[in-house]
Computed example of a mutant assay.
Amino acid sequence: GFHIIQTMYGCDLREDNTTRGFYQDSYDGRDFLTFDKETMTWVAADIGAQITKRRFDADVSGKRRWKVYMEEECIQWLKSFLEYGKETLQRKVRPTVRVRGRSAHDGLRTLSCTVSGFYPRHITATWLRNGESREQDTYSAGPLPNGDGTYRTWVTMEIDPQTNAQYACRVEHESLLEPLSVPWEPDNHRIPAVAGGVTAALLVAMGIGAVVWKKKCSGKEPGIGMGASLHPLTLQTPPS
C-alpha cells in the first residue's frame, strides 16, 4: 500500500543570537526519526524506526553534512535574508491603544482595550484594577495580522461599575521604552478616541496632500503608489 513520509528541517536564530537546528521525519503522520546534532546520532521515535536509525547512524559523512548544515549553512542563509529585509523584519512600530466601556448583562460593564498597529508580533496587554494586574479576569484575542504587516490584539474584562476602583490597560512591547498605561474614565472615555480619530484623519489627509504636491513639483502626474513588505520566513534549504 501507500505510505507517507514527511520531513521537516531548518534552523532558528534567536534574539540572544543563539541558534537551533532541527531535523524530523514522520511516517504516516507519526513521529519517526529526529537528528541530535550534539551527539551526532539519530533518535528513533518507536521500535519501527530502529532499522532506519541503525542504517542512518552508520552513515558518518551524512551525519556530518547535517551538522554543518544546521550550524553553519542554514544560519548563514537565514542571516542573509534578515539583512536583505532588515528594514521590515527588524523594525519596531509603536502600538496605538484605545480603551472603551459598554453595558453588559446584570448591570455589569465590559471594558475593552484594543491595541493595534504594532510590530514585531509579541506583545503583552492586560487590565489593571487599582494598579494590580487582573489577568485571570480578562479575555484576550490575537495577536492577529493587519493588512499593512503590523498586528492587533485586544483584551476585555467585566466590571461592576458601582465599585470605587480605577481601571487601566497596560501594554508592554519592545518598541516602548517603558510600559504604556491607558486609564479608563467612565465619564469621558469616548472623547480621546474621537479626537484621536479626527487627528489621524487630518494627518492622513495632510500626508496624501504632501505626496501629491511633491509629485507635481517633480513634473510627474499625481498618483498613489503601492509597495510590498517582506514578512518573516523560516529558511529550509536542503544541504549540498
Rank of each mutant, 00 (worst) to 15 (best):
Y27R: 09
T150I: 03
N164W: 07
K63M: 12
Y27L: 12
S26W: 00
S218F: 09
L235G: 01
R170A: 10
G48Y: 08
Q136N: 10
Y69G: 03
R30A: 10
A201W: 10
I75G: 05
W66F: 07
D59V: 02
V171Q: 04
D57G: 01
R152E: 11
L233H: 12
Q136S: 11
R55P: 00
A193L: 13
A205C: 08
Q90D: 10
G62K: 01
E71Y: 02
A168R: 04
Q236T: 13
P186C: 03
T234V: 13
E73C: 04
L235S: 03
F118I: 00
S80D: 15
C217Y: 11
K53L: 09
G227D: 13
L180C: 04
D12C: 10
P232V: 05
D148N: 11
P95S: 00
D25R: 02
P120F: 07
R64I: 08
G48T: 05
G48H: 08
D31G: 06
H231T: 11
P145M: 04
P192T: 01
G10N: 06
I5T: 13
R30L: 08
C217K: 14
G117T: 01
D160L: 07
R102L: 11
S175D: 05
G207M: 12
Q236C: 12
Q90K: 15
P145L: 03
H173A: 00
T126I: 11
G62R: 05
Y69Q: 06
I51T: 13
T39K: 15
M70Q: 07
G131Q: 04
S229A: 13
V68D: 08
P161Q: 11
N146S: 12
T19I: 13
A195Y: 14
H173Q: 04
E38I: 07
Q166D: 12
D36Y: 01
K92Y: 10
E221C: 09
V204P: 02
A195R: 15
S80K: 13
Q236I: 04
L180D: 03
F35N: 01
D31C: 01
T96A: 11
K214C: 10
P238E: 09
D59F: 06
Y167A: 01
M157C: 06
T138S: 15
F35E: 00
D46K: 01
P239L: 07
C169F: 02
R54K: 14
S175I: 04
L144K: 13
P179C: 09
G209I: 05
S26L: 00
W154H: 15
